[in-house]
Design a protein around this nucleic acid. Structure first.
Lengths: 138, 138
DNA sequence: TATTGTTATACTCTATAACTATA
DNA sequence: TATAGTTATAGAGTATAACAATA
């Protein structure tokens, strides 16, 4: 007899958990929390303001202050006042921060290891289906 | 010109976030944290021991003690010593807990609202693809 | 006055270590 | 002795409200 099929929403839960857990593990192997790794991952070459980071990370600005403070204490990011608008602080990644970020991204093998199992055609199909799931509610 | 395609792993991140955020919102509308809602969601009619809950929720037993304490303070669960092995505590859901749990599940509209957009054929395809992604690493 | 960011504070989640009660 | 659970404690993530500096 066939195995009872796993309901689709249960599969989605499992996917969410697997993806999340892979990121958490990757962050921890580099000595970061998942949230700190997200912040580091969100930095661009020009740096980002605290407000931009709050928006990207979908959290309060006061939270960003704390996350940045911890990363700064570890020497992974630097904070300096913007030249044009001195209210704005720009957060930039340090050379040490780049090394750690590379390590996190390399350790986050979900995309490589799991997505690598799909053929190109399957990827396209998955992409189309995810697009429908992610479309904003009508 | 076509929109530049969204990378598949970015789509996955978005899905993870959307799914997670939907659960978080559902829990909060019922006055619970996401973790508390997960615990409530994991309870069965016969109740579960603290240890079982720790295993299901993938966290330490001391954490379960705190989560249960908060839910118990709100009258949503009850804790009683097991008759056979008095070291074991069985956590059961109260009538009020059932009402709250129903509210959370109803508010968690992800499955209904997002998955409802797919045709049966698309669901089957998605299920197959998720199965490949979720298969344990070879 | 409005905006950017910080500080003070509080709550929750989470884990570790030491402890109690029971087996 | 071993197991189930609790307590004490600590660190991190998160938010709200009050505040400082700058525009």
């Amino acid at each position: 007899m066939p195995d009872s099929p796993v309901p689709l929403d249960r599969q989605l839960w499992d996917l969410v958990y697997a993806h999340d857990a892979a990121w958490d593990r990757a962050a921890r192997t580099a000595g970061l929390s998942a949230a700190q790794a997200c912040l580091l991952d969100a930095l661009t070459d020009g740096g980002r303001s605290m407000g931009e980071l709050a928006e990207l990370l979908l959290c309060d600005a006061s939270n960003v202050t704390q996350l940045v403070a911890r990363l700064e204490a570890g020497g992974l990011v630097a904070r300096r006042a913007d030249a044009d608008d001195r209210r704005v602080k720009r957060v930039t990644i340090t050379p040490a921060g780049r090394r750690v970020r590379r390590a996190v991204r390399r350790a986050f093998d979900f995309a490589d290891e799991r997505l690598g199992r799909l053929t190109e055609a399957e990827r396209l199909r998955l992409s189309g289906l995810l697009g429908k799931l992610l479309a904003p509610p009508s």
